[in-house]
Structures are given as structure tokens and as C-alpha cells.
Simulated scan of single mutants.
Amino acid sequence: MANAGGSMESRHRGRRLVIVAAVVVALVVGALILWGIRPVVGAASAPAPAATATPSATATPTPTPTPAPRPTPTGFPANTTAYDVTSLPQVNVFAVIPALPVDGDRFGAFTGEQAVAHGGGAPVFADPTRPPVAYLPSQFPYGGTTVPVIQKQEHWIEVLLTGRQAVPSHGDSAQVTGWLRAQDVELAPIDTIVQVSISARTIDIVHAGVPERIATDFAWGTPSTPTPRGRAFIMTEAVVPEYAYTRGHPIVYLSVQSPTLDGFGGEDVAVTAFHYHDQRSGPISNGCIRVDPSAITRLAQLPLGTPVIIKD
């Protein structure tokens, strides 16, 4: 029995040794695992990089191109010749100067500028490649010295003028033009124009592109003394008491004259004008445009040189 007990005790002792060994092995393995995942002492932990959002593509607006200013046409070559203007005929309402050309584009546009001669006056050329044929004074008692520009070049401007190429009984009395050297004048902007429509019976003052209707009925020339059609400008304004039919209202004289009358009222001129008249409807005048008091008051407020276009 003693031998049997010892065998059993030996077997129990061996079983305990196996269990102890297994526990030791487990502890060693666990220690090794913990050692492998421990943080490194003394090394700065690098923060995990934050997710960086990929910037979305932003459309860059295309800038609106600024239009380049339109260059002034060079045109005729410069002319710096000095001229004695006192030896030339003066352009004024009474002048008849055959060398002055008649307006070749009666309903053409204006450039939006007006000119006044420097000093005693500016030579006027019918053709910029030839000598001058007249001169435009800087002042004249009956106006006509502030003239609208109808064409502009680098060295030259073409303008409307007062006076005539001929009286109707001897030629064409229509609106005349001429060329001035840019060096001889002072230019200024003007953004007002008077538009007359005979057929529509309307008169508009257009300022900066905005029309102001000032008349819806008026009188104009008879078939034998018609109101000249085309472009012109305000030459001067005056109150003339001896013209009783105006009732003391101003007369607004234009640069253009009658196509059929050599003169009028004992004068050697037949100037077209806006003026008041008691009878002011239909084709009944000698060529002038007769309007009511409010219309003539408004027209008389416009500056000299204001462009005017009269259409059928």
C-alpha cells in the first residue's frame, strides 16, 4: 500500500509541476507582448496627421475687357502755315462765299463737340490740302461763332458755318460747311440737340439721349417758301421789339437760310428761325417755325451752337 501511495503522490507532484510550468510560460509570453506594444519612452509622439480637405476648384471670373478708345482718324496731314486771316473774307450770317462747300450729308450726325476760334479768328478751308478760303471770327455781334463739329480728325475738324455759298437766285443757298485746323480752335462737349419732325408735328430737345417733347403742333414754310430740311445750329437768340408778331418773345435764329428767298424784310439775308406767332399751325410761314410761348422760351434757353435737325 505504501508503494501505491508513493506512486500516487509522485503522479500528483508531476501534475503540479506541469501546471506551474504552464503558468510561468503564460506569464513570460504576456510580458513579451506587453513589452512589444509599450510606447517608446523619451520620443515625442507625432500627432496623427489631420485629414486635409482638398480645396475645390474655384472658377476665376474672366474680367470684362475694357474697350480701347477708338483712335481719332489721322485724315489730312497737319498744316502749320501761318495765315493773315484779315486778308480773307469773314464767315458770318451776311457773307456769300462761293468757295464754301454746301453740306454734303444734310442729315448726318454730329460728333458731340463744338468749336470756337482762338484769338482773332481761324482760317477756314474748303479743302484741307489747299489754302484757306475764309476765316471764322471768334466773336461777331450776330453770333454764329460757336459752331458744331460734324467730323473730327487728328489735325482737322469739319464744322457747320453761317453764311451762304450763293443766294437762291444765283445758286445753292443751303447750309455750308468748312474745315478748321485743330490747333486754331478750342473744343468743348455738347450733348444737346433739337429734333424737328414736320410730318409728326413734333419738336424735341434731346439732352444726353433723353428727349423732352416741347411742341406737338407748329407752323412751317409754305411750298413756295419752304423750311429748309437738314442739319443746322442755333446761331443767336434775340428779342426784337419791332417784330410785333413775336409779342416780345425771343427769336432763336438758325445758321441755315431760305432755299427760295434772297433776302427778307428789306435785309440781304433770309435766316430761318424759331419764333412765337399767334398763327402757328400748318404750312403758312416764310420758312420759319412758329411755336407757342412755352416752346420758344425753352428753345431760347439752349446754348449757342446747339445742333438742330429738321426732317420731313
Rank of each mutant, 00 (worst) to 15 (best):
G144D: 10
E113K: 10
R164L: 14
Q153L: 05
V93D: 06
Q165C: 12
I190D: 03
V133A: 08
T129P: 02
V159P: 04
G119A: 14
S138I: 01
D103I: 08
G120E: 13
G144N: 05
I193R: 04
A134V: 14
L136C: 06
G171P: 08
V176N: 01
F110R: 02
P189E: 10
V149Q: 03
P168A: 05
Q151K: 12
D127K: 09
R181L: 07
V91P: 00
W179T: 01
G104N: 15
E186P: 04
Y135I: 02
Q151W: 09
W156I: 09
G120V: 14
A109H: 07
I198E: 06
V96P: 09
P141F: 13
V93M: 07
V93P: 00
R106Q: 14
R181I: 00
V116Y: 04
H170E: 13
G171S: 10
I190Q: 04
L187M: 13
T162Q: 03
H170T: 15
E154N: 11
W156E: 10
A134P: 10
R201K: 13
F140C: 00
G143V: 04
Q151M: 12
V124G: 02
Q195E: 12
V147W: 00
I97Y: 02
I150S: 01
F125E: 01
A95M: 06
A126D: 01
G171C: 10
V102I: 13
D172M: 07
G104K: 10
V133G: 02
L88C: 10
A109P: 03
S173E: 05
A200R: 12
I190W: 04
D184V: 00
W156G: 11
V194Q: 09
Q114N: 13
Q114F: 13
T86S: 14
P101F: 13
H118T: 12
G171Q: 07
Q90Y: 00
V116H: 06
H155I: 15
S197P: 12
T129W: 03
V147N: 01
R164Y: 09
F94T: 08
